[in-house]
Design a protein around this nucleic acid. Structure first.
Lengths: 118, 118
DNA sequence: TGCTATAGTATACAAAAAGATACTATTGGA
DNA sequence: TCCAATAGTATCTTTTTGTATACTATAGCA
């Protein structure tokens, strides 16, 4: 990594991944393939419709996911990863792995604090 | 990636990396090693002292960077990556690479839009 | 006729992140 | 005696994110 901060493109990836629900949406779609709006919602207890819609729209605007509307009533809308979106997988995977190590790390830290305070 | 969203640890990494200046700070320290507060500030035009201090404290609390105070006047405080912090490098690297591809991708998209609107 | 299901909007509000600006302590040197 | 340098705090304001809640359209069905 020999580059200047001014050509740092880390922010681009970060901008796409950031948002309380985006990583969860992306991992879900990566694992499960195509999903309807209602299935996404069911899978994310606590999310509001507005939030889910917003996150999906943002991901769609970045060409990370695809939105397909079926002209039916009641409506049916399906979401899936684009090929381009799938290219985020290594990042998500790296983050997930790091996150698991981090959990251990925090556990150890707490252990140390207990020792030193007793 | 065959896991349930409820054991998704992506958020942990995200929580550490998110912040307008954190990736820049981390890449800088990874590349340049130990740096003083004033050097960090000089390297990030636009950041306020308050912001820099806050981001550094948060990274320190997570054991990602180390803060060493020299009892001098005027004060001297040095920051550097911890070993643990260096374990974030693959993620930052993956993000950087993706970001570069993203820049091309966006350029192509704009080309296509120009074509289709002419 | 009125209810259900689905995928949303619209509006108001609360909380978190970021920015602007002013202030502090201390010592060596002019 | 007063100024410069360094690494901060303390407040206040603005912007961005996220939450809560209510509302909409429409085909099919009882």
């Amino acid at each position: 990594m020999e580059r200047k901060p001014d050509n740092c493109r880390v922010e681009d990836a970060l901008g796409i991944l950031v948002g309380k629900w985006k990583p969860i949406i992306l991992l879900y779609l990566l694992q499960e393939g195509t999903k309807r709006f209602s299935e996404l919602k069911r899978n994310m207890p606590g999310i509001t419709q507005k939030m889910l819609t917003k996150q999906l729209r943002e991901l769609e605007d970045e060409d990370i996911i695809r939105r397909v509307v079926y002209p039916q009533v009641p409506p049916k809308v399906e979401y899936s990863m684009t090929d381009y979106g799938r290219s985020l997988e290594p990042i998500l995977e790296a983050m997930h792995e790091w996150g698991e190590k981090h959990t251990e790390h925090k556990a150890k830290e707490e252990q140390n604090q207990l020792k030193s305070s007793s």
